[in-house]
Structures are given as C-alpha cells and as structure tokens.
Design a protein around this nucleic acid. Sequence first.
DNA 1: ACCTGAACACCGTTCAAGT
DNA 2: ACCTGAACACCGTTCAAGT
Lengths: 215, 215
Amino acid sequence: MTRRPRTGREPLNRERVLRAAIDVADAEGLDAVTMRRVGQALGVEAMSLYNHVDGKDALLDGMADLLVGEIETPPADVEWKEALRRRAWSGRATVRRHPWAPALFAARPQVRLPMVAYLDGVTGCLLGAGFSPQLAHTAVHVLDSRVLGFTRDLFDPGVQGMPDPALLEAMTGGALPHSQRIMAEAVHDDDVEFAFGLDLILDGLERARDSERSG
Amino acid sequence: MTRRPRTGREPLNRERVLRAAIDVADAEGLDAVTMRRVGQALGVEAMSLYNHVDGKDALLDGMADLLVGEIETPPADVEWKEALRRRAWSGRATVRRHPWAPALFAARPQVRLPMVAYLDGVTGCLLGAGFSPQLAHTAVHVLDSRVLGFTRDLFDPGVQGMPDPALLEAMTGGALPHSQRIMAEAVHDDDVEFAFGLDLILDGLERARDSERSG
DNA sequence: ACCTGAACACCGTTCAAGT
DNA sequence: ACCTGAACACCGTTCAAGT
C-alpha cells in the first residue's frame, strides 16, 4: 500500500553507492571493489548500481572524487606556508584513512575536476604569496607527489586521453582561475620541472646535513 | 625426429614471459596484461605461462622487479649529489618508457627485493656523504616519491603483509648493509618524516621565490 | 523510476590429458 | 618437461522483464 514495496530501506543514490564502494575498499582492499560486492554491501543486486553510476570506471572515478573532497581547504587569510602545510597534512590524513588511494589515483587514466580544483587552490595560494606562474606551477608538482603519494602531469595532453568535458568547461569558464593563468603564462617543460624539483630536494638535503654536522 | 616437435620457436622461460607482459603493458596498458593476452603475445595458450610464473600476481611482481632493474647505478666514486641525480634521471627515464609503472608499483601489496636493493644503494650514497642514518632514511623517502612517482613506507610492517622471504634473507644476511643500518640506528616515525620532507620542500620553495624576486 | 534474473563475453586458475 | 582443452568460479555489462 505504501510507496516502499516490502523493505524499509531507503532508496539508493549515487552518493550511497560511492560511499559503499569506499567502505568495501577500506575493509577489503581496492581489488575487492566489484559491482557484485558493492551491491551486496548495499543489500542489492549488482545490476541495480547501474541506475546510479555509469559503470565500474565511473564508480572508481567517483570514489577518487570523494577522496579528493575529503582534503580540507584552509581559510584564505592563512599565511601561505601554514596554509600549504595544513592542506598537506589533511591530504596525508585522507591517504592514511584510505591506504588504497594512491593506487586508485595512479590507475585512473584521467585527472578529474575535483583534483584539478584542489591543485588550483594550491596554485592560488602560491600566486598570492608572490610566486611567479612558472615557479608556482613547478612548486605544485613537487608538493603533490609528496602529499598524495603520486605524481601526474596535469597540463600534458599527450599522456591522457580526452579530458573530462566538465573539466574543460570549468577551465575555460573561469572556475579555475589560477590553473587558467598557469596554462597561459607558464612554459610547460617536464624535464625542466623535474630538474627543478630534484635540485630543490638535493640542495635542501645538503643544507640539512650541514646543519646536522655543525649542530 | 628432432627435439622441438613441429614449431621452430625456442621454448618459453620466465624472462621471456615477463618481457612479453611488459610489451603488452607498453602497447595496450596495464589492464591489458591478462594471462590469455600475454600467452597470445607469445603464441601460446594462457595455461602454458604457469610453467614459468606462479600466477598473475607473480607475473606482476616480476614485471615490477624488471622495471626497477632498468634503473642504472652510477659508479661508487661519483660525487654524491651527482650520483643521486643520475639515478633520479635514470629512474625517470624508466617511468617514461613505461608510463604504467607508478600504477603497478602502487598496486603491488609488497615492496620487493629489487626495490629495496635500489633504495639501499641510494641510502649508501647518502651515508657515504656524511648523512646520519636518521637523516639518510628520511632523505630516501623524500627522493623516491619524486623519482618513481609514488611513496611507500618500507620499514612499516603494519602496512604490508608478510615480506618476501628472499627480502628477509637479504636483509639479515648482510646483502643490504645500508638498509640494515637504518633499521638498527634510525627511529622510524612517519609523521616526523613527513613533516621533515614537507618543510624541506616549503623552505626550498620560499628560497626559490625570494631569489626569483631579487634576481 | 528503480530493481532483478538470465545471459554473454571475459577473467584467473585447476586438473587431467597429451607429447 | 612443457604445453593444451575442458571446466570452474568469478568478473563487467546488456537486456528484457518485473514492480
């Protein structure tokens, strides 16, 4: 007689499906995330998931998006180094809660909007602190591999397939102002960036050793 | 009448199987590496591979081992910064040749002997340059995420399952002297390490910005 | 509108059988 | 000693059918 046939459970939605998938990955690892297993966690057949998610790949993409969303963004008035530090620790806490996160990020073929939005925030923080677009771009690369446990080239169109349409839309529509500026004003050279990050680390290590000796 | 029944092809071996798997991954991506597909690349049924490899997981482990083996080790008399730089560029070249490498490393549950041996070399280079075991240990962490596109805690037994017996054997048998020394003399604290690497990067970035401004 | 059952083409793996 | 064919339990996904 009522709308809900014979079970009291609330209807599925995209969010609940993604959360269930994350729970399965947390408990049993990323490989355990199958359509059938996630369905089971929700008390539903695997095929029901297709009503809320476009398929397995979309499910994994959605999981990655939610993970990035867990990283906290500090208020804009926090001093730049402190702001980057807070973001880094929040990102690290996320990876700790979900140890399979780096494997998921590394396996996904596309860099997606939430990740780019996160990096846009980091970039804005650096630009606001007086970094040139060129240096800010390079800095983001050095930082993100440390925080998220992986490195990926964002602006290199050769590596990935066609980017997410939503991403292009956000990019050209002004929703990612800092990334847009980097695209326009920074030269993109992987080797130069790699060399910069490497020397930054090596020089920092040398300094740390010397102060250790004299200390 | 001859030993080789009716085909002129040389018999399979472990090395050829692993190479074929790497070729498949290079050409069609890591997901294309299935037992059936690798068998096909060798002109053989999938089941034949089990004579040379313990299964799919062992195949993936073997691929990872071969990748690490592609990283060149500079002669021992090269100055430490230059030596680390060469190793880093060689590692980067390897990842470039096999873009799926970070995803594979991140997906494998265990850190294996060849990887530890590589890191042992990096550690030895730092110890030889006068770094304390503590600082050398931390330095390796900062470096490897930059070079290999991923970070993994080596000495944290909680994260991984039982380590490779061959790894334990090498560790206790003196084949990895530098890693052994780190295990014995360095305190392992993930948070301290993370904070160190983060500050090293942030301080380096600040210095780069300031010299950019004054330059 | 949402869920299901049966079906299809795949996957890793076992095992008995071939040479 | 090495390779194979058939079989098993899984996987993602389609589709027609249910409510």
